[in-house]
Design a protein around this nucleic acid. Structure first.
Length: 491
RNA sequence: CGGGAUGUAGCGCAGAGGUAGCGCACUUGCUUGGGGUGCAAGAGGUCGUGGGUUCAAGUCCCGCCAUUCCGACCA
């Protein structure tokens, strides 16, 4: 009764903000634009980390860690790169405080000014490529496949929990290769890793594509991306993988001797996903009762609620629940028994629904007598009574897989139904106003792209990799076009 | 950087010159327990901050600070 979420169809962004807070995922901190990620929210992020980290290792990458601070001069070595980030950098200018001579508190010690300012990393290409120069001399040093889990800071004008915060957590892969082909293959491979993770772990269908020149990462030759559709029809970039060419190798003078004893610049990629995925997760699946977590991701897949009056009943019910939970735990399921005596069952039902746990099993004296257990599915809200002896690994796996698949199917149907192919500018605008993605022809110029953005707030999310050759006319200018691109309003 | 809103108990809010309030949460006891139990008794406050008006200021006036929402910005 104390907690009530706003309805999605009344105020989507308020619903989102409230859900993040009420489901105990994160809250605003004392620092403007920065959030505190609470244990439950962080637990979900840790699951993402574990699964991705394993995929990175399986594809040959190793983790390392580079400094939080970047000397100012590093950032300006790659011209496009500094242009892209200069406006949102936090800068460290001093290294000491002292007592305020005029009274209470402390002041920045003017005598402690840094010789060269330090930038709090908005991304680590520069510091990493500076380091790679020392690590790479020979073709035998390549490929160099490194990932880092880190925090970065981008001083954005406007922030929203998980979707855009001043400081956020992410991983950034930075690889160096002997050839262009190999680097492009790496960038594409990591895009596939992301797409696989987002679709099969987060149950969110994505569109794979490349960015237009205008939307490309600062310093990249090609930016591959995966785009997802949220329930309100807006797009969310869920991950990017960049082919950086030799830009950073040249900026930081990273060359290697090939087998013919010739010096060559190395080829680079970088790729990343962030805590923004939490936002994608929430806005893809959740409903007016709270979060809905796909089972492959959920930190808790099954919560058990004991129902009882007397101590004897409690002992009996708990005895049974513990034996079931222990069995499932030993088979690798993530389970929790909520035996908090200070909360009543109804309260717990609502609470775990708010937190999105895929399955809830309740067991009380009546069930014990009937040798059954109540099973509740968070995604469909179906309740059923199952014979206790049926609660075995195969059955649970089947149920969890079904939920996982169901969430994906719902999201995929939404994406299909709301991706509209249009050939006129009027249809284009109408479809956007109906919260849809739009596949339309575009003349390939940044001018047209910006004009459309100005008039409709829609951007080209990507040129889908599977977009077939098709003669057509630009939806805005009527100039010739060879394929459709994906337009949408975006987060 | 524009526009709006808000700063009062842990949280959410009311109070619009004259004794600091309500709901939730918290503590204690009983009750209840299969969809956010009910009752009772408690504990908890420099009313964001600095100045001004007044016999008297959460309350009116001016400044400042902070947060937040909507835009602009956003590889």
């Amino acid at each position: 009764m104390s907690k009530k979420l706003p309805k999605r169809n009344e105020n989507y962004s308020e619903w989102y903000q409230e859900l993040v807070i009420q489901a105990d995922l994160a809250e605003h901190s004392a620092v403007s634009g920065c959030m505190v990620i609470k244990p439950y929210g962080y637990g979900i992020w840790e699951r993402m980390q574990q699964i991705l980290d394993q995929k990175f290792k399986e594809t040959g990458h190793q983790n390392a860690y580079f400094p939080l601070f970047i000397p100012k001069s590093f950032l300006s070595k790659e011209a496009q790169h500094v242009d892209g980030f200069a406006k949102e950098c936090a800068v460290v200018t001093h290294h000491r405080l002292k007592n305020d001579p005029n009274g209470k508190g402390v002041i920045v010690d003017p005598d402690a000014k840094l010789e060269e300012e330090l930038i709090v990393r908005p991304t680590s290409e520069t510091i990493i490529w500076h380091t790679y120069k020392k690590w790479i001399q020979s073709y035998r040093d390549l490929p160099l496949l490194i990932n880092q889990w880190a925090n970065v800071v981008r001083w954005e004008m406007r922030t929203r929990l998980f979707l855009r915060t001043t400081e956020f957590l992410w991983q950034e892969g930075h690889t160096a290769h002997a050839t262009q082909e190999e680097a492009i293959a790496e960038a594409k491979q990591m895009l596939e890793v992301y797409a696989d993770f987002v679709e099969n772990t987060l149950s969110i269908p994505v569109i794979k594509g490349v960015k237009t020149e205008n939307e490309r990462f600062a310093g990249a030759l090609e930016t591959y991306c995966i785009e997802a559709m949220m329930q309100d029809g807006k797009a969310l970039q869920a991950g990017t993988s960049h082919f950086l060419g030799q830009n950073f190798a040249k900026a930081f003078d990273v060359q290697y001797l090939n087998k013919n004893n010739q010096l060559e610049y190395v080829w680079a990629t970088s790729w990343g996903v962030s805590t923004r995925l939490m936002g994608a997760l929430i806005m893809s699946h959740s409903d007016d009762d709270g979060l809905i977590l796909p089972p492959n991701l959920a930190p808790i897949q099954i919560v058990f609620i004991p129902i009882y009056k007397t101590n004897e009943e409690y002992a009996e019910v708990m005895d049974k629940l513990e034996s079931i939970a222990d069995l499932l735990k030993s088979e690798g399921f993530r389970v929790k028994i909520d035996n908090d005596d200070s909360k009543r069952p109804g309260w717990k039902f609502a609470e775990w629904e708010l937190k999105g746990v895929p399955l809830r099993f309740s067991l009380g004296p009546k069930d014990l007598k009937n040798h059954q257990i109540e099973v509740f599915r968070r995604d469909t809200k179906e309740k059923s009574f199952i014979p206790i002896e049926n609660i075995v690994s195969n059955y649970i796996s089947m149920l969890l897989n079904d939920i996982q698949k169901n969430l994906f199917n719902i999201a995929q149907n939404r994406l299909k139904e709301r991706t509209i192919y249009v050939d006129s500018y009027q249809e284009f605008k109408n479809s956007l106003d109906n919260d849809c993605f739009v596949m339309a022809h575009w003349d390939g110029t940044t001018e047209t792209e910006l004009l459309i953005k100005e008039e409709t707030k829609a951007t080209i999310r990507c040129i889908p990799l599977d977009s077939p050759f098709e003669e057509g006319k630009c939806v805005k200018t009527g100039k010739p076009s060879q394929r459709r691109v994906l337009f949408a309003r975006a987060y």
